[in-house]
Design a protein around this nucleic acid. Structure first.
Lengths: 376, 376
DNA sequence: GATCTTGATGTTACCGCTCACACCATACCG
DNA sequence: CGGTATGGTGTGAGCGGTAACATCAAGATC
C-alpha cells in the first residue's frame, strides 16, 4: 500500500503478477505436513490419519484453498473437461440438449467447455474440434445434425472419445450417436392422421440436406405408401415459422388438403397462421401435426398435436455413451448407437376430416377434460 | 488382447497411459532448435530468423503439434478461458445471450466454460462460481436475473473479473451489469396502448421476485399513473404460457379489459389462447402486447406486437465489459453499467379499442403491405 | 527378540510450457 | 581496434500438482 509509483517500480516487488491464491504448499505448511499429505487428503487416499486429515481440511478452509486444475491436468493428463460442439444453440432443441449434457456432466464430476460453430461446413467444425483439443478435453459431444459434423469427429486425435447427438443416422457408424427415431416419429404422426380418416397427409418438411428432415420425409412417405394413400409432393424448406407460413399459404389454397404433418413445431406455427389467414379452420377443415413438442406448442391456437422428443434425455444419454467410451479408453466394443423412441402427443389440432369437433367458441379446448390440453 | 488376467498385469508395459501427442521438445528436435525457439515461434516473438521460423512451423505441421494449454496456463496464470453461469438456458433469451457471449469470446481468442445452475439460490450460484474458479477462468459472466447471483459474484476470489447480464438493476453497483431498460420497455408498450385510445392497460406480470418483472411492473404502473389512467391490480405469475393462460382466463371474463401488456411473449401466447377460447377477438376487442420478441412472436395468431430486446447484443456487450475489466486488472474506474434501449415492434395484436381492423378472413395480415408481418 | 508386514508420512522427479537470463556472433561506434 | 548495442538462440528454473519410491514407527508373526 506504500509505494504506488508504478512504471519505475522496484523489480524486486513482483510488479504485475496476478494475485494468486494459496497453493498446496501453503496448506501443507499451515497444517504442519508435507504437500503430498495434502494431496492425499484431497484425493481421498485412505492412508491418512483422521486427525491429520482434519488438520489439513481446516488449513484448506482457513486459506480458502482451491486446487489448481491446470497443474493437475498437466500431470495426470486428465482434464475432467468435456467439449461440446453446438450449432444453433438458441433453438429450443439444441439448447435443451446442451442443458441436459451440462447437468449430467456436472453430476459426473466433469466440466464442460462449449464451442459453437457459425455454420456446419467442415472447416468450422474442424476448427471447433481443434479449439477443444487444445483445452485437452477428454471427450467431445457434437450437437450434430449433419453428417459433416460426425465425419469431422473421425478426425479427432486418436484416443479422444466422441459422440454425435440429435442428428440422423450416419452412413458409417464409426462415430457413436444418440438420436431419436425420426422415421418412427413421422410414422406416428402420419398414421394418426390416417387413422382419423384423412385420405392422405401433406408434409411441410425441413431442409432436405438435414438427415433429420430427410428421415421424417421418408417415414411419412413410407407410411402413406403402406396405407395405399397418395403421396403428395414435398417442398423442403427451412426449420422456421416463416418457411411454414410460406408453404402453408400454398397448401391453404388447395381445398383437397385436409391434413398436414410439419417437420417441426415452428413450421407448424407458420402453417397454422397461413391456414387461419386463408380462413381454413383447424382442426375442423384441416388437421395439423408438429414435431418436437416445444413448451409453447401446448398453447398454440389450437393446441398442437405433435411428436415429442425428449431433448434433455438425449443429452443425458449422449453423456453416458461418452463416459463409457472414456472408461473403456478406446479398446473393445463397437460404437454405441442409441435410438430413442419419440412419442405422439395428441392435442386439439387434429380431428376427423370434414367434421367439426363441436368446440367453436367453447372455453377450454374441446373434448379433453382436465384443463388446458395437459401433457400427460 | 493376450493376457486378459488383469490385476497381476506386468507393470513393465506402462499399462494405461493415455496416448499423448507430440510436445514442444519433439518439434524442437525435428527442427533442430531448442524448445525455447519453438515457443518463440508459437508466441510470435519477433526475434526469430524467418528461415528458422519456417523450419519450426514445418516441424509442427509434420508432427501435428498442439500446444498444451494446461501447461501454458500453469505458468502464465492466464487460462484464456471465461466462465459463464447460466440459468434456464433452454429459454430463448438466456440461450441467445449464451450464444452471443460465446461467439464474441471466440473472436477475442477466449475459450468458454459453462456452468448452469439448477436454481438461483445462493448455494447453487456459489457452487458454480467455485467450479469455474477451479478451472482458473479469467472472468465470469453470469446470466443473472436475480440479485442473489450478482451479490454472489462479489464473493469471487479477488482479482477475478465478473459481470452480470440480462437482469434488473442491482442495489449495490459493485458488480458491473449489462441489461436492457425494462422500465422503458414497459413504458413503450403501455404508452402504445394508451395512444391507441385504450382507457387503461392491464398487466400480466412475471414472477415478482425477479427484478426484470418488477421493473416492468413499475414502468407500466408509472406510465398509467402519468397518463391519469386507472391502475388495475397485478397478479404476478410465472414466465410461462401456462401462467399467461390462467391469468388470461380471468381477464377474459371482464368485459372492461381492452388492453393487456404481458411480461413476456410466452405469457402473451397463453393470454392469446385464453382470449380466443373466451370468444374475445384480438385485436378487435382486446389488444395484447408481449415482451422479448422471440422469433415465434411474429407468427402468433395474430402476430404479436411486442417489445424487442436484443439478447445477442447483450451477450456481446457483456463480454466487452468483462474484457475491459480483465485488461484493467482490477485497478481504476468504477464498474460499468450498460443499459440498452428496447424497441417496440408493432404487429397485428394491437388496435384501437372497440374497432375492428378490417382484417377478418382476409389473407395476409391486414393493413401491412409487404409480406407476413415483417420485422422492419 | 529378529523379521516381516502395514500404515502414515516425506522426498524427489517429472508433466509441458514460459520466463529470465546467458551466450555468441555480427554490426556499429568513436 | 576495443567496447557497446543488438539480433538470434540456448539453458535452467519453476508454475502446482501427482506418482513412485523412500522412510520409519508400531504391531504381527514365528
Amino acid at each position: 500500500m506504500n509505494s504506488s509509483t508504478d512504471g519505475d517500480a522496484d523489480p524486486a516487488e513482483a510488479p504485475s503478477a496476478r494475485p494468486r491464491g494459496s497453493v498446496m504448499r501453503d496448506v501443507a505448511r499451515l497444517a504442519g505436513v508435507s504437500h503430498q499429505t495434502v494431496s492425499r487428503v484431497l484425493n481421498e487416499h485412505p492412508n491418512v490419519r483422521p486427525e491429520t486429515r482434519a488438520r489439513v481440511l481446516e488449513a484448506m478452509r482457513a486459506l480458502n484453498y482451491r486446487r489448481n486444475l491446470a497443474a493437475r491436468t498437466l500431470v495426470t493428463r486428465r482434464s475432467r473437461t468435456l467439449g461440446i460442439i453446438g450449432f444453433e444453440t438458441t433453438l429450443f432443441g439444441p439448447a435443451s440438449m446442451l442443458y441436459g449434457i451440462e447437468a449430467a456432466a456436472r453430476q459426473a464430476g466433469y466440466f464442460v467447455s462449449v464451442a459453437t460453430v457459425p455454420n456446419l461446413d467442415r472447416r468450422s467444425v474442424l476448427d471447433a474440434v481443434d479449439r477443444l483439443t487444445q483445452q485437452s478435453v477428454e471427450g467431445i459431444i457434437a450437437i450434430a445434425p449433419k453428417p459433416t459434423v460426425t465425419t469431422a469427429l473421425l478426425q479427432v486425435p486418436a484416443g479422444l472419445a466422441s459422440v454425435g447427438v440429435g442428428g440422423g443416422a450416419t452412413d458409417d457408424d464409426a462415430v457413436p450417436t444418440v438420436r431419436i427415431d425420426n422415421g418412427a416419429g413421422a410414422r406416428l404422426a402420419t398414421q394418426h392422421l390416417l387413422d382419423l380418416g384423412h385420405p392422405t397427409v401433406h408434409h411441410v418438411a425441413g431442409p432436405i440436406d438435414w438427415p433429420e428432415a430427410y428421415e421424417r420425409i421418408e417415414g411419412w412417405r413410407r407410411t402413406l405408401y403402406d396405407a395405399g394413400a397418395v403421396v403428395p409432393p414435398v417442398a423442403p424448406g427451412a426449420w422456421t415459422a416463416r418457411s411454414g407460413y410460406e408453404q402453408g399459404m400454398v397448401l391453404a389454397r388447395d381445398p383437397s388438403v385436409t391434413a398436414i404433418f410439419c417437420g417441426n413445431d415452428q413450421i407448424a406455427l407458420g402453417v397454422l397462421r397461413a391456414l387461419h389467414e386463408a380462413g381454413r379452420r383447424v382442426p375442423e377443415q384441416v388437421s395439423v401435426v408438429g414435431f418436437d413438442d416445444t413448451p409453447d406448442a401446448e398453447y398454440f391456437l389450437p393446441p398442437l398435436t405433435t411428436v415429442r422428443q425428449d431433448f434433455a434425455e438425449l443429452g443425458r444419454r449422449s453423456l453416458r455413451v461418452l463416459l463409457d467410451q472414456i472408461d473403456r479408453q478406446g479398446r473393445g466394443r463397437s460404437p454405441d448407437h442409441v435410438v430413442l423412441a419419440p412419442e405422439l402427443v395428441v392435442r386439439a389440432s387434429t380431428a376427423m376430416p370434414g367434421r367439426a369437433r363441436r368446440r367453436r367458441g367453447r372455453p377450454s379446448g374441446g373434448a379433453r377434460p382436465g384443463g388446458p390440453g395437459g401433457r400427460g
